[in-house]
């Protein structure tokens, strides 16, 4: 018995050199929030996949565009319609699936666009400092927190109502959210020893940013990404709701609510179900984001 064992001190377990994926995912499983959010999000990804299928596979589109004039505003679980039909007798279940596909597609595209732009500009501002930083920070101040809807209205003036206007408007505002956080992180990371060491070895600035700083921020990016997809889904639905977003025949959850609101007396589910879908998608993404935040970066708060 060695002295250390005698006093009851446990030697730290040796680190196995190659961690398996189950090791890496262990903290994720231990985090209930992340699991619940992940399951909800996964469910809607499957729904979206089904929606995408009926939209792109030739012949399947009948499922969500076919109008049945004798079966309008059917309540859920009647006449063989799981979720009922809308005022044109179209299957709500398939329309919701297609709308979910559109919503998540827009959410992911916008988030990837604004994340890429925001991370690059934020990292450059934080790393370069000086005049470059002042210019980029000024741009961030200009758009950060600006009402997306107001920007979208301006873009709709530019390119006609539609999803292009939505993508442009939300990206123009959202990149600043990423850029702010990334800039702040780079500012603190660049003073760390490993960056200093790389600089001392003569590694060029762009390479330090790409190889040493960006990988350190991937956790943050993932957390913020899930929040921003949720924000984008809400913005798209809101704009489509007031007629500035997706235009018929593109199915959109926001537009379905707007159509359904005129028939609240007939079949409220035509408006309620798409709304519940949006709320659940957002809830899933936000919960997933909260869980990921607890895992990757407990200090990062949403506001």
């Amino acid at each position: 018995m060695t002295a250390i064992e005698a006093i009851g001190y446990e030697l730290p377990a040796e680190r196995t050199p190659g961690r398996t994926w189950s090791d890496r995912l262990a903290p994720l499983w231990a985090n209930k929030l992340a699991v619940v959010g992940g399951v909800i999000t996964l469910f809607f990804l499957i729904v979206a996949a089904a929606g995408l299928a009926v939209m792109v596979v030739p012949g399947w589109s009948d499922l969500y565009v076919d109008q049945r004039l004798r079966q309008t505003l059917v309540w859920p679980l009647q006449d063989g319609f799981v979720l009922g039909t809308d005022n044109h007798g179209r299957s709500l279940a398939w329309r919701i699936a297609a709308g979910t596909a559109v919503s998540l597609f827009i959410g992911v595209v916008v988030t990837l666009l604004s994340m890429t732009l925001g991370m690059i500009l934020g990292a450059v501002a934080g790393y370069a400092g000086g005049a470059v930083d002042r210019l980029i920070s000024g741009m961030i101040d200009l758009v950060w927190g600006f009402p997306v809807i107001l920007v979208a209205v301006i873009f709709v003036g530019l390119v006609d109502p539609g999803l292009t206007a939505v993508i442009l408007a939300v990206s123009v505002v959202n990149w600043a959210g990423f850029a702010r956080i990334v800039r702040a992180q780079v500012l603190s990371l660049k003073e760390r020893a490993f960056v200093e060491a790389a600089r001392a070895l003569g590694v060029p600035g762009w390479k330090i940013v790409l190889r040493h700083l960006v990988p350190n921020m991937l956790g943050t990016a993932l957390v913020m990404g899930s929040y921003y997809i949720a924000v984008t889904v809400i913005a798209e639905a809101g704009l489509s709701f007031i007629g500035l977003g997706a235009q018929p025949p593109t199915p959109s959850l926001g537009q379905m609510i707007a159509d359904g609101r005129n028939f609240l007396y007939g079949n409220p589910w035509a408006a309620l179900l798409p709304g519940i879908t949006i709320a659940l998608i957002v809830l899933g993404l936000n919960t997933l984001g909260d869980g990921l935040r607890d895992i990757f970066d407990p200090r990062l708060r949403r506001w």
């Binding site: 809400i234 639905a237 809101g238 709701f241 007031i242 926001g254 609510i257 359904g260 609101r261 609240l264 408006a271 309620l272 709304g275 949006i278 709320a279 957002v282 809830l283 936000n286």
Partner: peptide, 10 residues
């Protein structure tokens, strides 16, 4: 935070 305002309105 999860319920969009236009849906809350409905």
């Amino acid at each position: 935070m999860g319920i969009p305002n236009f849906f809350l309105a409905i």
